[in-house]
Design a protein around this nucleic acid. Structure first.
Length: 542
RNA sequence: GCCCCGGUAGCUCAGUAGGAUAGAGCAACGGUUUCCUAAACCGUAGGUCGGAGGUUCGAAUCCUCUCCGGGGUACCA
């Protein structure tokens, strides 16, 4: 519908040159009587043309050439809005496209041939995934789905680090627990990993090796096995949510392949780094930052910035047109450094999109649960999935804007899971399936031959929502805003439930029943496609 | 101190590609099942969009200041 308006405006602009000077916007008015679309062009031109906006509107309208089978009427309203009303039969045409394209409806090839990399989760293997990681995981996977739906070929990537102090502590945590199992009286250090899973891993060593590993170094078998066990656990948790990665990128690769060294040299050559107090500093001030920062510590160990930059360079080298990073808000301060470093080396940082999501606050019994993997104070993602199910978890984490803080009352979620909006959507789908089952014995066939009979208020409302789908998906995807899809689907489901209540299929005349069934099936397809992008199931029965 | 995010109905949050009378879900209250699933639908009530200025035909949306909450500000990642 919007496309058609754009078309006739472009055509009119050949006669009214001032139309090309402004960006023409078409909005869907909140109020029904204001039409299907509304345009504010006349008001935007008042200053320029020094004329009354209503006069301008009239001039614009008289220059629009349109098909009366498509547009029913055009009105000037309020201060100078131009309101467009489409014909019911044009609005109903969307059913045809939906039924023809089925699961491909809403997919566009705008970015066909482009490659995207979405990096997310990227938790180091020091413990089970928590609810906090869950938000990251679901956002990343959904964004990946959205990008695929607009044509990108997407790689899902997990970046991790299995060197460093964290991992040494992990290995030693396991060893200490192992020694305890052997009967040694040990005060387990407070700043070690306190979780039960450490004891489980220690038990594996005890069962398999008895006391033979007393002299084994913590960073040897203990660390390796812990990493392996924990990683398996992480992968299993993610798979449970339907999330799988193409690539696990080990930070260590960057060192092994000399990429860190090469990067250091590149900075040096460009005269962007210098030595001070035995450390290497990068000239961030020169790059527009607030202060210079250390990239190699006086101990010779690089700080996280160096591998992060080198890592992104590998993504550029691998030929991605778009690189998405999904970070928690605790990383806000670090990514500008990475981008500045890349920019200094002439990489096009516009290809990088950083999604920062705000933290999830978990409330249990009215109290805030402070998360810490180290202190073993957390609610795991698995526990959450156990409590409320996969669909609710996935939906819950994307139904809100990523930039919005999220409160999650566990107690409430367990109790009131029936009232979660995801069921509202799923129920709409199940209801349609039920209709199709019921109607299958009757002489009713989903047919697009008499769509012009769909003129009732509820039918038209539902049709208008269906007409919005393609645009919504594209907008949400291009702007990396998965929650918009949720809002849209809730509106669609609401429009369907109203249609269901007021427009019966059984008992209507054959032609109308056929058209209504076609409308119901089209709705089913769109619900299915939308839920599919969210990774939420569309059940046939509930 | 400085930087990022948020502050919208009792609660959780949409709306921030400037638009017409600010929305949804839950909670509260009242109604709707001889009829394709009542996990639904209809109605009532509930708001100084944190506060103050400004920009303009028009501001929840943009700018400035300010208050409150979260996160960050390392030779931690």
């Amino acid at each position: 519908m919007k496309n058609y308006l754009e078309k006739i405006f472009n055509e009119a602009a050949q006669r009214l040159s001032y139309l090309s000077d402004i960006k023409i916007n078409f909005d869907i008015p909140k109020i029904e009587s204001h039409g299907d679309f509304s345009c504010n062009a006349a008001m935007m031109l008042t200053k320029k043309l020094k004329k009354n906006p209503r006069q301008i509107a009239e001039e614009i309208i008289s220059n629009l050439k349109y098909d009366e089978d498509i547009i029913q009427k055009i009105e000037i309203a309020g201060p100078g809005f131009i309101n467009f009303f489409f014909t019911p039969s044009f609005i109903a045409k969307v059913i045809k496209s939906i039924l023809e394209q089925k699961e491909n409806y809403g997919r566009v090839d705008k970015y066909k041939g482009k490659k995207a990399n979405v990096e997310f989760v990227s938790a180091n293997p020091t413990g089970p995934l928590t609810v906090g990681h869950g938000r990251n995981a679901v956002i990343g996977d959904t964004v990946a789905n959205m990008l695929e739906s607009i044509g990108y070929e997407v790689d899902r990537e997990y970046y991790f680090n299995n060197a460093g102090r964290q991992m040494r502590v992990l290995g030693d945590s396991v060893k200490q627990r192992y020694l305890q199992l052997l009967g040694d009286k040990i005060d387990f250090p407070e700043d070690y990993y306190q979780g039960e899973y450490i004891k489980d891993i220690a038990k594996l060593f005890f069962d398999e090796h008895g006391d033979k590993l007393k002299e084994e170094k913590p960073e040897g078998k203990f660390k390796e096995r812990a990493e392996q066990e924990i990683f398996n656990d992480i992968k299993r948790s993610l798979k449970l949510l339907g999330i799988e990665f193409n690539t696990f990128y080990n930070e260590n690769t960057l060192f092994e392949e000399g990429k860190i060294e090469a990067l250091l040299n590149a900075f040096k050559e460009k005269n962007l780094s210098y030595e001070k107090n035995k450390a290497v500093w990068l000239k961030f001030i020169e790059l527009g930052g607030e202060q210079d920062k250390v990239i190699v510590k006086s101990t010779g160990e690089p700080t996280y910035r160096l591998p992060d930059i080198a890592y992104h360079i590998t993504k550029f080298d691998r030929g991605y047109d778009l690189m998405v990073d999904v970070f928690g808000s605790d990383h806000v301060a670090s990514y500008p450094d990475v981008l500045a470093g890349l920019k200094a080396l002439d990489y096009d940082v516009n290809k990088i999109k950083v999604i920062i999501y705000q933290f999830v606050t978990i409330l249990e019994n009215g109290e805030v649960v402070k998360m810490s993997t180290r202190k073993a104070n957390y609610v795991t993602l698995d526990e959450l999935v156990d409590e409320v199910g996969i669909d609710v978890v996935r939906y819950f984490f994307i139904m809100r804007n990523t930039s919005s803080h999220m409160n999650f009352d566990l107690t409430l979620a367990k109790k009131q899971s029936d009232e979660n909006p995801v069921f509202y959507l799923q129920y709409a789908h199940a209801r349609i399936c039920s209709i199709i089952r019921t109607v299958s014995g009757e002489n009713i066939i989903a047919s697009t031959r008499h769509l012009d009979l769909l003129v009732k208020e509820e039918e038209q409302q539902l049709l208008k929502k269906l007409n919005k789908y393609e645009e919504e998906i594209l907008y949400a995807s291009e702007n990396f805003e998965p929650h918009r899809i949720c809002s849209y689907l809730e509106e669609l489901a609401a429009a369907f439930h109203k249609f269901y209540t007021f427009c019966r299929i059984l008992g209507s005349k054959k032609k109308l029943a056929d058209a209504r069934l076609a409308l119901a099936e089209a709705t089913k397809t769109v619900l299915q496609n939308g839920l599919g992008i969210l990774g939420v199931t569309a059940p046939e029965r509930m």
